[in-house]
Simulated assay, not measured.
Amino acid sequence: MKMIDAHIHLDHYKDEEINSLMGGSSQIEILVSVSFDLESCKRNLYLSRRFSRVKPAFGFHPEQPLPTGEDLNELLVWMEKHREEMFAIGEVGLPYYQRLDQKVSKQDYCQYMKLLESFILKAKIWEKPIVLHAVYDDAPIVCDLLEKHSVRKAHFHWFKGDDKTVERMAGKGYFISVTPDVVYEEEIQQLVRRYPLEQMMVETDGPWPFGGPFQGQMTNPNMMMESIKMIAKLKKRSNDEVAGILIRNTKFFYNLT
């Protein structure tokens, strides 16, 4: 089975780990490496130039302090300069976990929304897919912004949310991606049962660590094999059929050849 990791932070791995991953299984056809900030973008661009399997996405991860106006402008100028090598805008979104830990004020949250909206507008202007960090009660807000600007090519990575939002996202044609926690998390299994397979991808979000049978292991794209098997079981389809659909979905979403 060929696989595509639709969302990985390859730049967050150590050099020796990257060399091991890239020299490993030929089953991993492509890795979409998302960015955290400008330095992360530069690192991912370098990795994409070094390894043809790496396709970079550029953006600013929301689970960190807001950028200054100067820093944001520098990032957007850099993204504009390198947009021909950029396969998507991401990872961008809203700071759900920071807000949960009471690290974001209401005023700051409004600024995060404006920041996200600026990236959504760039996705529309540059005609790029957008990769979103938007879970639970942040997701409807992000849907509102996408609809406001008529942006449809949206990927909600590692999505978690209520049934109403799931139905809304599926109806709008938005994509989700599933991590290896589908193997042991009932919440994610329920999402897979409900969401259209034709709008689904698999990812690792590496180097984020996983539990269950992956406890204590370095997150490796090969773990997606177990994700695919579980998705196939939940959808009552064969492993090969599901693997083929997922890889076609990912190539379509990211305009990969």
Rank of each mutant, 00 (worst) to 15 (best):
A123V: 08
I130R: 08
I245Y: 08
L72H: 05
F210G: 06
D11L: 02
K103M: 14
L191Q: 01
E117A: 06
E203L: 05
E16H: 13
V32D: 00
V242Y: 01
Y195F: 15
L197V: 04
D101V: 00
A232G: 08
L100Q: 07
S227H: 03
H149N: 13
D37R: 09
V135R: 15
R168K: 13
G69S: 12
L100A: 11
I120A: 03
V34A: 00
P56G: 04
F60E: 00
V77W: 08
K229W: 00
E187T: 11
N249V: 10
W78P: 01
M224E: 14
L21E: 04
G216Q: 12
L121M: 11
F210L: 08
P180S: 03
H61R: 07
E91M: 00
L100N: 06
K160W: 15
Y97H: 13
R152V: 10
L132N: 03
Q215S: 12
A88Y: 06
V77C: 05
F252S: 14
F214N: 06
N19D: 15
I228R: 07
K128A: 03
R237T: 15
K153P: 01
F156W: 04
A134L: 08
M3H: 03
V183C: 13
V166E: 09
P56C: 09
Q102S: 15
E17R: 01
W208R: 08
V104S: 03
M3E: 01
E85C: 04
C110E: 13
Y112R: 04
S238M: 05
G24M: 00
P196I: 06
H9L: 08
W126I: 07
K160H: 15
A57S: 13
Y195A: 14
V202Y: 05
T179W: 10
M86K: 08
K14C: 04
E80S: 13
M113Y: 06
E147P: 00
R194L: 13
P221S: 05
K55F: 05
R53D: 02
I231L: 05
M201Y: 07
W208Q: 11
T257R: 13
D144N: 11
V242P: 02
W158I: 11
N73A: 07
W208I: 06
K172G: 10
L234K: 01
W208N: 03
L146Q: 11
H7Q: 09
F51W: 14
E167F: 13
D144C: 11
I125R: 12
F36G: 00
F253Q: 01
I130P: 01
T68A: 08
S35Y: 02
M230Y: 05
Y46V: 11
V242A: 03
N249G: 09
D163Q: 15
H82N: 15
E84N: 13
E167K: 15
M225G: 14
G24F: 10
M1T: 11
D11W: 04
G69F: 12
S150W: 09
A232E: 01
D11S: 08
Q111L: 15
L100G: 06
A6N: 06
K236V: 07
N73Y: 12
Q64V: 05
A139W: 02
Q215M: 10
V92R: 01
H82W: 13
P221G: 09
V131K: 00
V92E: 02
G93A: 02
F156A: 05
E70K: 14
L246T: 00
Q190A: 12
G23K: 07
P95R: 07
S25G: 12
G212E: 06
R50E: 14
G173Y: 01
M223V: 09
E147S: 14
G216K: 12
Y46E: 15
K14T: 10
